[in-house]
Amino acid sequence: MRRDPPASIPNYPNAEAQLASFIAKYPPAIAALGTEVRLRFRRRYPTAIELVYDNYDALVLALSPTERPSDAIFSIVFHPLEIQVCFLQVKKGFYDPEHRLQGRGRIAKHLTLTNSAPLDEPAVDALMRQAIRRAKAPFATDGLPRLIIRYVAALQRPRRLDQ
């Protein structure tokens, strides 16, 4: 049974509260780190549309310039032991000289975080700027952020290892 509002209702009034309840399912350290990463992305990309998917395996916050999931440039993925920042449009020619990104995907790769320090590194900043330059659609230059709960899985793996 779906518990989320229809995707056609942007800025659903309870979206922030709903997202907070999803994050609260995770261990406190992971919840805090994920929230910090989200706030840092929100400051850096203030017009990004956050598309939230509380999936079977993980909580995903896709950051997109449009409401189309395929236009998302980054995502923040909550796992019980770590946070991943995914670069979703890493296609042929994406330059990662320090090999910071992990994964074998031809379109998406990720950076695993156990703290937020890597987000301050020049190499990661360069990767983020490159991702923005190469994106299918740019983030708007002005406007308000939006949070849209797109999907809530009826069945989910435990979000804490002690469950």
Rank of each mutant, 00 (worst) to 15 (best):
L59S: 04
Q18E: 09
P13F: 03
S116Y: 04
D54G: 06
V52I: 15
L51M: 10
S21K: 06
P13Q: 14
T47E: 11
R38F: 06
L61Q: 06
A24R: 02
F78M: 04
F74Q: 04
S21V: 01
N14D: 15
S116F: 02
I23H: 03
P46L: 02
T114L: 07
P13D: 04
T112R: 01
E50D: 04
D71P: 07
Q84W: 08
V90F: 08
Y95I: 12
E121V: 00
F87L: 02
R44E: 05
T66I: 00
I30T: 09
A58D: 13
E67I: 01
P80H: 05
F78A: 09
N11V: 12
V37L: 04
V77E: 11
F74Y: 10
G93F: 01
A24G: 12
E82P: 00
P13V: 10
A24I: 08
F87W: 06
H99Y: 04
L63F: 15
P65Q: 03
L39A: 10
A31E: 02
A117P: 04
P97C: 06
Q89S: 01
A15H: 05
L59N: 01
A72Q: 12
Y12F: 14
L61K: 05
D57K: 11
G105K: 13
G34K: 03
P10N: 08
A7E: 14
H79Y: 15
P46K: 10
S75R: 08
P13I: 13
L101E: 13
I76K: 07
N14W: 12
P10D: 00
G34I: 06
K25A: 12
P118W: 03
D54P: 06
S70H: 09
L33M: 07
L59I: 03
N115P: 01
T47W: 06
P6K: 03
A72I: 04
G93A: 05
E67W: 05
F41G: 02
K92M: 10
S64M: 07
R43C: 00
A7L: 12
I73Y: 12
I23T: 05
A32C: 00
G105F: 13
K92G: 10
